[in-house]
Structure formats: structure tokens, C-alpha cells
Design a protein around this nucleic acid. Structure first.
Lengths: 130, 130
DNA sequence: GAATAATTGTTTCCTGGTTGACAATTCACC
DNA sequence: GGTGAATTGTCAACCAGGAAACAATTATTC
């Protein structure tokens, strides 16, 4: 388990360094990824749930992303919630950086064969499902 | 890779919660573990190296552990360095909590069979070695 | 052997994130 | 329908950790 935590820690640090180049944290990128995957505007609370982050933190992440024009807050019929939408500019950014991000992942995982990567994926799945 | 990072993150959070009960962070415990494993006093810089943490942070970790009397700073013939030693009280603490920590690890890993745990261990080894 | 480089521990400042409180709103139950 | 519970986004305060600067010391190089 310690090895696993160590590897995870190292990946987080590496990705932090990586996204720092774009003036973002990995968590900022995570928000964009989630929005891109959702395909439709979703609430801040939902984002926080998906990325295991506090609502307070999501507020700050969205603040920055909105300032960068990657994202927009929309009013919702439930007037407590903000729906967050990926702007065209945000979508473009995700698309442009996707290759870079995938390259990064391949670089990190290149010590494992394709087969081992599959095994790892399945093991992680077992650990995640509750 | 994302799954792997997610799992790592969750383990860090869980262990943080766990060690919080003792008024320590996982990193504090990590220091004790390293000192216990070393079997002899080692320098703060060396501790930082082993746990991938900055010297500045090690200073603060040791400050707290020393206040708790788990650890003692010894002068060294190289007068730049502090040798850090596990006190009897610190060793006793490690011993008393060991069962608890191992139980925690088993709990977290119980979704995997013994065989899968071994596979995971070896995969992590490949990812770690540079 | 003197001068420059490298190492150690500490301090100060900064940053990303969490917790807890808050007002606004919606839900649930009587 | 009206009242108490739950949920949402935000803000302030706080915390662990990192980066840079620093003095003290040791290593290296000429």
C-alpha cells in the first residue's frame, strides 16, 4: 500500500508540474475534463462530488476558469445552483492540450506493457468500487 | 493513470484521517517509521530525501515530534547537521500503533486477493524504479 | 592555505485545499 | 400552506507543505 501511495503521490506532483505550464493546477484541468465529459452544463456541487473536492474549493477553481473564459456560470431554474458550462474557448483548450496530456500519461506509464496497464486498470477498479 | 491517481489520493486522505486521531499527520508517522527502520539516528536532510519532502517541512515535522517527546535532536560532529533519534517513548508509540496501522492497510486492500496484492506490488515497483 | 562552491537547518512568505459559518433557496412532513 | 430540515454557493479563518533567502558550516579547487 505504501508503494501505491508513493506512486500516486509522484503522479500528482508530476501532473502538477505539467499543468503549471498552462497556469493551471491539475484540479483546474480536472474540472475542464469533467465538463467536457459531461457534455452538458452541470452544477458546482456535482463537479465537487465527481472530483472529490469541497464545494468551497470548486468555487475558487471555477472563479479562475471563468476569468480565463474557459467556463461560464449559468443561472438555473433551481435558484440555489449555478450550472457551469464549458465555453467554446474552453473546449478548444481541452482539445488542443489533449494530445499533450495523453503523451504525458504514456510517458508515465511506459514502464508497463500494454498487458500490465490493463491489469493495473482492473486492479484500480476493484479498489475504487465501493 | 487517472484511476491510479484517484486511488492514491483516496489512500492519502484515509491515512490522514487515521493519523489525525493521534494528533499527527501521515507524514509525521512516516518520519517515525523511517527512524524506526533506520535503527540509528539520521540527519533531517536524509529523512527529507527518503520521504520526498522538503528540508523546510522536515524541520516543522521534527519540531512537533520533538515537542511530543517522540524524537530528539542530537548534535553531530558535522556541526551543520542534527541527528534525529527515536526516543524510547517514540519507539513505544510506533510499536503500540503498528497493529492498528497494519489493520488499516489490510482494510484498504481487502478488495484484492493475496495474489492480486502481489501483482500490484510488483507493478508499483516497476513504476517506481527509475 | 585561501577562495569559492556545496550542504544543512531554519525562517519567512506564498499557495492550494479544507472546515465551518452564513444567507438563499428548495424539500419534506405535519 | 407553513415550518423545520437539507442543499447550494460563498466567504473567512486556518493548515500542511513548498520555494527562496539566509547564516553556519564543510568540501573542493587552485
Amino acid at each position: 500500500m505504501i508503494r501505491l501511495m508513493r506512486v500516486g503521490d509522484r503522479l500528482w506532483r508530476a501532473s502538477d508540474e505539467r499543468f503549471g505550464r498552462w497556469g493551471l493546477t491539475d484540479n483546474h484541468y480536472n474540472v475542464l475534463r469533467i465538463l467536457n465529459g459531461a457534455g452538458e452544463p452541470i452544477s458546482q456541487a456535482e463537479i465537487g462530488r465527481q472530483m472529490l473536492s469541497s464545494r468551497a474549493n470548486v468555487t475558487k477553481l471555477i472563479d479562475l476558469l471563468e476569468e480565463r473564459k474557459f467556463v461560464k456560470r449559468l443561472p438555473c431554474e433551481d435558484r440555489r445552483v449555478n450550472l457551469v458550462e464549458l465555453t467554446d474557448e474552453g473546449a478548444k483548450f481541452v482539445e488542443e492540450t489533449a494530445a499533450d496530456v495523453i503523451g504525458f500519461a504514456n510517458e508515465e506509464m511506459k514502464r508497463l506493457t500494454r498487458e500490465e496497464q490493463k491489469t493495473l486498470f482492473s486492479l484500480m477498479g476493484k479498489l475504487l468500487d465501493e
